[in-house]
């Protein structure tokens, strides 16, 4: 008996076995086809670099579009004009950068490096602020904001003032004030009545805020209301007698709406950004698990 005749005879004797064999063959074929489709379908590539990327660095992709843009930026020419050496150089740089970024994440650089933390904070806020930054000024809102905060929109005043302080306990402040108000030369009167220039303030025009910082509140308040040529005092500060002589005063001036528009708009944007950033923080806080130690409060 020939072999095929023997197989046929055997098969005819055992149809169940043949059915099983065919089913198994079908299952194997199905598995092979299914496996091929699974591992070549978009987004499920397990081996190799996805076609939209130029590299995978520890499974993190470097997008082809980013590579093309970076190459064009670095070479200053269209991508197709970049030489293979240019492309290689750029890709190496991008891979190096990705490696360093991943290293930074591994060692949790954000936990310790203030620059990284600042950059992350700025990046998140930039996303949150996008709508505000792209908004346009509304004339009515500008005017309303100006009206509500008019005192902010002033040009700081300036003053050229002399702070004369008693040289010692023998200084006669009352006589000095009377002499100065009577028109006596300041240098002569200062010497005659035992005073000298304290030197706390530079000669020439100084902004009000600068004067306040250097004089302190009491002396500043005595000086700020003086006009050109007026004398104030005596003013006692820290046990010393002061006499103030205003040589030139330019008071603070209120800016009109038209002059203040730019600044008003900037202030409105700043406030709007602060508002959305705070809203974002509130949202994050609501989702976060924050525990504060006893004795502290956030």
């Amino acid at each position: 008996m020939k072999l095929d005749q023997a197989v046929s005879a055997r098969a005819a004797q055992d149809p169940a076995r043949r059915t099983l064999l065919l089913s198994a063959a079908g299952a194997v074929a199905g598995l092979l086809l299914g496996g091929y489709a699974l591992f070549t379908a978009g987004g499920t590539i397990a081996a190799g670099v996805p076609p939209e990327d130029v590299a995978l660095v520890n499974n993190r992709p470097i997008l082809q579009s980013d590579f093309v843009t970076q190459t064009q930026i670095e070479t200053g020419a269209p991508f197709h004009d970049a030489t293979p050496a240019d492309r290689q150089h750029v890709l190496r740089e991008m891979i190096d950068e990705e490696l360093l970024v991943q290293r930074g994440l591994d060692v949790d650089l954000a936990a310790s490096d203030p620059d990284v933390r600042s950059a992350m904070v700025a990046g998140v806020n930039l996303q949150v602020d996008a709508e505000v930054l792209a908004s346009q000024p509304d004339p009515a809102a500008l005017r309303a904001y100006y009206a509500a905060h008019a005192t902010r929109y002033t040009i700081d005043g300036t003053m050229d003032v002399r702070d004369l302080v008693a040289r010692n306990a023998g200084g006669d402040a009352g006589a000095l004030v009377a002499a100065l108000r009577g028109g006596m030369d300041m240098a002569a009167a200062t010497t005659q009545y035992g005073f000298l220039d304290s030197g706390r303030l530079g000669h020439g025009d100084n902004y009000d805020f600068g004067v306040k910082a250097k004089f302190g509140d009491a002396l500043y308040q005595a000086a700020v209301g003086l006009h050109d040529g007026q004398v104030a005092g005596p003013v006692t500060e820290d046990g010393a007698m002061h006499v103030l002589v205003m040589l030139h005063r330019k008071p603070a001036t209120q800016l009109g709406f038209d002059a203040a528009r730019d600044t008003v708009w900037q202030d409105m944007q700043r406030e709007a950004r602060a508002h959305v950033e705070q809203a974002n923080l509130d949202f994050l806080r609501a989702r976060a698990d924050i525990r504060v130690a006893a004795g502290f409060s956030p």
Binding site: G26, A29, G34, Y36, A37, T40, P50, P51, E52, V68
Partner: peptide
Amino acid sequence: CALLVAALVDGVTWHRNRLRTALVGNYADA
């Protein structure tokens, strides 16, 4: 029939993957 259907589905998938790869695998301007 089942094998044919499977082959057809796989063929379509393979064709679409080939097109997808061509779409994103080439440089955008080429």
